[in-house]
Design a protein around this nucleic acid. Structure first.
Length: 996
DNA sequence: CTAGCGTCA
DNA sequence: GCTGTGACGCTAG
């Protein structure tokens, strides 16, 4: 197999081309500068990579097998060995030194991967680091890194040889550290592993991060959620995938031992031959067959008591990966010896009696602080990864926090909100569900978790949803009712819902607590301090929430919702893979259609690119000039160019054939990439489960991601005859219906039951605005839909002839006008003149006079207080309400009004979810489970025989204002719920609420 | 008009 | 190769 090299961009201004001589490196830097200057003066069309190669070869002659590569956008260049490279060896040098970022490429004969660590949190931005990987053959020439220029002068008493790690940290001068690492590429299982040396240099602060990354075990992305049906293969699959993971990522012994070696060693020098060590281990195995007892001391005596970086206590010593490779050879003794000296302890190391005592103490503590500890040694409170990327959409940020990354659970008990007493111990519990020994102590721990969750002492935990998911998986329960859990992150979000990606760190700054930078204390001490902060934080947030009248909302809605969301994530939806594959096949044929488009324009262009499309449509074809009446087209908000949105394209349909094709293409492309292929990537063993985010929407709504189940098209798309002309192999007349919701199917003997609040926001607006006309419409319990009625009035056609599309359109228009849409936007949306649009707006506002009155009141309140509130007292800060800019202020005013209504609706929907679930729990004999919330709609999966009783139960709960709102508010409008049921999500037939 | 997420260049 | 941003398009009111 040819070596796979990951092209790594090397900012030339920082780095040298390390396999070259110093002289050559200087020349290459010169070439880079030269190229840049040329590019400034005249536009060099040449790719930088090609340019480098030419210049290099002119200077030094050809370099066989080396690829010169570069990235135009990032202004970087790098030299990469090609497939036939003889110049570079596996493990060859690559230097990349960036401030605040450490990047490394490990390369091997059979595989290569790169690891990147972004330092975050307490690490100051000024820190620099560099990493080199040194090939055996070119070591001498490569040892030119500045940090390596120092002679190998080991400090006295700084040498340490450790048998469980192959890392050697050696202090250079000052804060600089150096270590040499031997890793294996290839698999020891297959016997093809090869040695690879790397020499790294880093400063003290970054050492922890370096260490964590060096030995980070790749996470398996198995999200193996137990399916409602049987899934007997699950465990074997997991095992297999882990095994193959070990093989594929070339994790040699050095990485396999990550848990033990996941501590940073100061004053330690190790020079260890892996092979020797393996031999020794084999020897041990043969000799004793039993783990060495801790009391025998051995190398652990070398561990300094004041060692600055020790995070071994964060890790349980054995993981599956390790077990596969290195069966029973135990190094428990070292961990044991280490953990004795620190304030965090693993409960699995306690004696039976001690464990009982500890658990008893924790159970009787008034307040229990809980934190998840990740495999890389960071915690929820101090997470290296969490701050790494704030991007939501890619899911990186959130995946890092997924349960597969969790190593253990840290628990600390304390009394009365004063934080843990001095010297309180933080106990480390093995991750529930892990393969720890099933002995009596394990039973104790299981019972402990159960007792802890069911007692009413408060449990404080950041991102408690993850914690609850872990527990629910472990105990195989589908809901934890009334758990007294308090999540400070949610509390902080409630204080300022616009604050995105709230973390522990951000919450702290919200209540003016400081996060100390524990540079010199040990990791466990940091953990304990963080626990103190956690307790303190919750106390402060409690006071603030009470002061802002948010405490009831927090306790009765948000915290009750939390276990439900956890439960919903463990209730995956069954998908019909056949339907999905059929959709996929149909859409794949559409690729042919895609290739036919550019030919219509005369030259090829990227149809997905709005920029290129703009050029073709308006600069080349000049379609905007051909438009009858010389109408002006909508511009984009920021670039102020002509938009290529649907509204514009549909205006252009008459002028050229291209716009129509593009509209059609876009529709299918969206279906293909997002709803079929995107959805298929989320399927695990025939099931889809989404993630729910409680704290991402400023209005208090829930949001879902991976996949965004709330944004799956509600109507089917028919690929019509028109389109079929562009699908090769399809005869005209064929109709293909693509309907993503159809691939969600209920279990055999079960059905979906959808409960939909009718016009929830409009009803709430009626309540809030106290509009007599609106109130009258809703109070008079007429069976007809208000939107249908309005549509029939506007279009002057009978109610029975109004189509769902028309109803949907009216709905959009009503809401648009309600929230203050301008006449231009409305005209664009309805494809009518602005004059007509204005007439519609005016007629609406005249018909419901209290609406604009309410808007004014809402804005005034916001201007006085700086925030708006909902019926449940949820508040949103709107700073722009006093902005001098009229544009910003107008937007803020609309937001204020919208928040009142949308937020109130969100409150009501959340309350409904809680009440429905609790009602179902109290009727334990009913087989039903809440699976999805789409803002105003609750989707339940219900056993067929219970359908009738459940549907009346759900309806009565959701329509009961007292149950939903309690004493929070008394609504002036009745709440109406419509129900529908069916075997697939796509085809739900309405249930008449009259009969039972 | 207001909320979201996902895709793509 | 990776990251950030804007435009677009789907959802929900």
């Amino acid at each position: 197999m040819s070596p796979v090299w990951r092209p790594v961009s090397a900012p030339p201004q920082l780095d040298r081309f390390c396999h070259l001589s110093d002289d050559a490196q200087l020349v290459m830097k010169g070439i880079y500068r030269q190229y840049n200057e040329q590019r400034k003066q005249q536009n060099t069309q040449e790719q930088p990579g090609t340019y480098y190669q030419q210049m290099y070869e002119r200077r030094f002659g050809a370099l066989p097998g080396v690829i010169f590569s570069s990235s135009q956008t990032r202004q970087t260049a790098s030299i990469l060995p090609g497939p036939s490279s003889s110049t570079l060896e596996p493990g060859d040098v690559y230097i990349n030194s960036l401030s605040n970022q450490l990047e490394r490429t490990v390369c091997g004969k059979s595989n290569a991967h790169s690891v990147r660590v972004n330092n975050s949190g307490p690490i100051p931005e000024s820190s620099h680091s560099s990493t080199m990987l040194v090939s055996e053959s070119s070591k001498n020439s490569a040892l030119t890194d500045i940090s390596m220029e120092q002679p190998d002068a080991a400090l006295p008493n700084t040498n340490f040889e450790d048998t469980d790690t192959d890392i050697l940290f050696q202090q250079d001068k000052g804060d600089s550290w150096r270590y040499e690492k031997t890793t294996f590429e290839g698999s020891p299982l297959l016997g093809n592993n090869e040695k690879c040396h790397s020499i790294c240099s880093t400063n003290t602060l970054e050492k922890e991060a370096v260490y964590a990354s060096d030995f980070k075990i790749p996470s398996d992305n198995m999200r193996g959620i137990a399916s409602p049906g049987n899934s007997p293969n699950c465990t074997t699959d997991t095992r297999q995938s882990r095994q193959s993971m070990v093989t594929n990522t070339c994790t040699g012994p050095a990485q396999g031992k990550s848990s033990i070696s996941a501590r940073l060693k100061q004053h330690m020098i190790i020079r260890k031959d892996i092979q020797m060590k393996q031999d020794k281990r084999e020897h041990h195995k043969r000799q004793s067959g039993v783990p060495i007892n801790a009391s025998e001391g051995s190398t652990t005596s070398c561990l300094d008591t004041d060692r600055k970086y020790s995070s071994a206590h964060f890790s349980t010593p054995y993981k599956k990966q390790k077990k596969i490779m290195d069966d029973q050879t135990s190094e428990t003794h070292k961990v044991l010896a280490v953990s004795r000296q620190h304030t965090a302890r693993e409960v699995t190391r306690l004696s039976d009696q001690d464990l009982r005592n500890v658990l008893q103490t924790l159970l009787s503590a008034q307040e229990v602080l809980i934190t998840l500890v990740y495999k890389n040694g960071s915690t929820q409170l101090r997470d290296i990864n969490a701050a790494q990327t704030k991007k939501k959409s890619t899911g990186i940020f959130r995946q890092k926090q997924w349960t597969s990354e969790v190593q253990s659970v840290a628990v600390c008990g304390c009394e009365g909100g004063n934080g843990p007493p001095h010297g309180a111990k933080v106990w480390l519990f093995p991750l529930p569900g892990q393969d720890h020994n099933k002995d009596s102590r394990d039973t104790h721990i299981r019972v402990f978790w159960k007792d802890l969750v069911s007692n009413q002492h408060r449990k404080i935990c950041c991102d408690a949803k993850i914690f609850l998911i872990i527990l629910m998986k472990e105990f195989n329960v589908h809901f934890i009712i009334d758990v007294a859990v308090f999540d400070p992150v949610v509390a902080a979000w409630l204080m300022d819902p616009d604050c995105e990606n709230v973390t522990f760190h951000k919450s702290l700054s919200l209540v003016c607590l400081t996060w100390k930078e524990h540079v010199l204390s040990s990791a466990v001490d940091v953990l304990r301090e963080d626990m103190c902060l956690l307790s303190e934080l919750m106390k402060c947030l409690y006071q603030k929430l009470v002061a802002r009248d948010l405490w009831v909302l927090y306790c009765c809605v948000e915290m009750k919702l939390l276990p439900l969301l956890a439960a919903m994530e463990l209730r995956p939806l069954r998908v019909d893979s056949d339907t999905m594959l059929r959709f996929s096949d149909v859409l794949k044929q559409f690729v042919k259609f895609e290739s036919s488009i550019p030919s219509n324009a005369g030259h090829p262009f990227l149809i997905n690119s709005p920029a290129q499309l703009r050029q073709v449509l308006f600069e080349e074809l000049k379609l905007d000039k051909k438009l009858p009446g010389g109408k002006r087209l909508a511009k984009t908000n920021i670039g102020h160019q002509i938009s290529t949105s649907e509204a514009v394209l549909s205006q252009l349909v008459g002028t050229h054939c291209l716009p129509a094709i593009i509209l059609e293409y876009r529709q299918v492309q969206k279906l293909k990439s997002t709803y079929v292929e995107g959805m298929m990537s989320c399927v695990r063993e025939g099931y889809i489960s989404t993630h729910w985010d409680q704290t991402s929407a400023a209005t208090g709504r829930l949001s879902s991601y991976q996949p965004n189940i709330q944004a799956i098209p509600k109507t089917s798309t028919v690929i019509s005859d028109y389109t079929n002309n562009y699908i090769v192999g399809k005869k005209s007349g064929d109709r293909v219906e693509i309907f993503p919701r159809d691939s969600f199917i209920s279990h055999d003997g079960w059905s979906f039951l959808a409960a939909d609040f009718q016009q929830i926001e409009l009803r709430l607006l009626a309540h809030l605005a106290d509009d007599p006309t609106l109130l009258k419409i809703f109070t008079e319990s007429r069976s007809t839909d208000i939107f249908i009625e309005l549509t029939s009035q506007w279009l002057s056609k009978p109610v029975s002839l109004v189509t769902t599309q028309e109803r949907e359109q009216t709905k959009r228009v009503v809401y648009s006008v309600m929230y203050g849409a301008g006449k231009e936007r409305l005209a664009e949306y309805l494809k009518m003149s602005t004059h007509d649009a204005k007439a519609i707006i005016d007629s609406f506002l005249v018909k419901f006079p209290a609406v604009s009155q309410f808007s004014r009141k809402c804005v005034e309140f916001c201007q006085r207080n700086g925030f708006t509130t909902t019926i449940f007292k949820r508040r949103r800060l709107i700073p722009n309400i006093k902005s001098p800019s009229p544009v910003l202020r107008a937007q803020a005013e609309r937001q204020a009004v919208n928040f009142c209504v949308q937020g109130s609706a969100a409150d009501l929907c959340k309350a409904a979810m809680i009440q429905v679930e609790h009602t179902l729990q109290s009727h334990a004999h009913l087989k039903a489970r809440l699976v999805v919330q789409i803002h105003d709609e609750l989707l339940l999966e219900v056993s067929d025989e219970d359908l009738n009783s459940i549907r009346s139960l759900v309806q009565s709960v959701m329509e009961d204002e007292v149950t939903l709102c309690g004493k929070m508010v008394t609504l002036k409008v009745p709440i109406k719920v419509s129900l529908s049921s069916g075997k697939t999500w796509g085809h739900l037939s309405p249930l008449d609420s009259g009969k039972l």
